[in-house]
Design a protein around this nucleic acid. Structure first.
Lengths: 131, 131
DNA sequence: GTTCGTGCAAACGGTTTGCAACAAT
DNA sequence: ATTGTTGCAAACCGTTTGCACGAAC
């Protein structure tokens, strides 16, 4: 109980009703939502919630390390509560983003590019669902 | 000579002065420019060139396979004339995007994700220049 | 009472679209 | 004559910002 609230406190974020509502949705979803998708969803439970607060809240969460911004889609920012290293697969048809476990792919050489210190890397795959 | 013009014809694109000017820049650059950067650059040589034409032209080029859209940066679309498979490295400090040759990284498993037909994949690396 | 968070609306930046003029076929 | 291309401006969409109100410390 009060899981989202506890998480916020852990990360040094003042727990307001709006932030808790946003956290409750965004920290447990695997849909890689955009800010507007978060707004549309959370608003149903918390109708006074404004767009600005959602954007502020998501950016705050990202700063504090609860979320990661993933530039996976054209011109939009998607948020991912799964902050540990993993890969991504994007469905060409629907645009949906799926997580791929880190150990599903074996990589050699990505951490050592000449002249660079690579901080992180991931494989981005695109394709379509097999039916 | 007339290399850009020939390329456009090869791809079935009517060669107008504006399109040739855009092509001459965007097909030879390795800077992964945004549409506005293309506009700013090409405009110096072709001052009548409008933003709309640049956007239309780049989208046309992408449709026809001369360029690839790469969703590598937050909220912006960057264009890459290097359409063969390769990887990308983004400098954390400057945001600049660099190409990494395909064979610089060895990957196993990215082409075979359960339930998906992977059409393409690439490694996206982030880090900073070593000084 | 000062700080912080919220909601609203306006502003913003990148991109697309509608339309009239124009060039090419 | 028809089709396709351009430039301009307006519209659009996602996101950020300014500001006044209200809540929390």
């Amino acid at each position: 109980m009060h899981k989202a609230m506890d998480t916020l406190r852990e990360y040094g974020i003042q727990a307001t009703p709006q932030r808790v509502a946003v956290a409750e949705f965004v920290l447990q979803t695997d849909t890689h939502p955009t800010a507007d998708e978060v707004w549309a969803t959370v608003r149903r439970r918390c109708p006074t919630l404004s767009r600005a607060t959602v954007y502020n809240t998501l950016n705050l969460f990202a700063e504090k390390g609860l979320l990661k911004l993933q530039p996976l889609k054209d011109g939009v920012i998607v948020f991912d509560p799964h902050v540990e290293p993993h890969h991504h697969l994007i469905d060409d048809e629907t645009g949906k983003v799926f997580d791929v476990p880190w150990n599903a792919v074996k990589i050699a050489g990505a951490a050592t590019v000449e002249g660079f210190e690579v901080r992180e890397y991931q494989v981005v795959m695109r394709g379509r669902r097999r039916r």
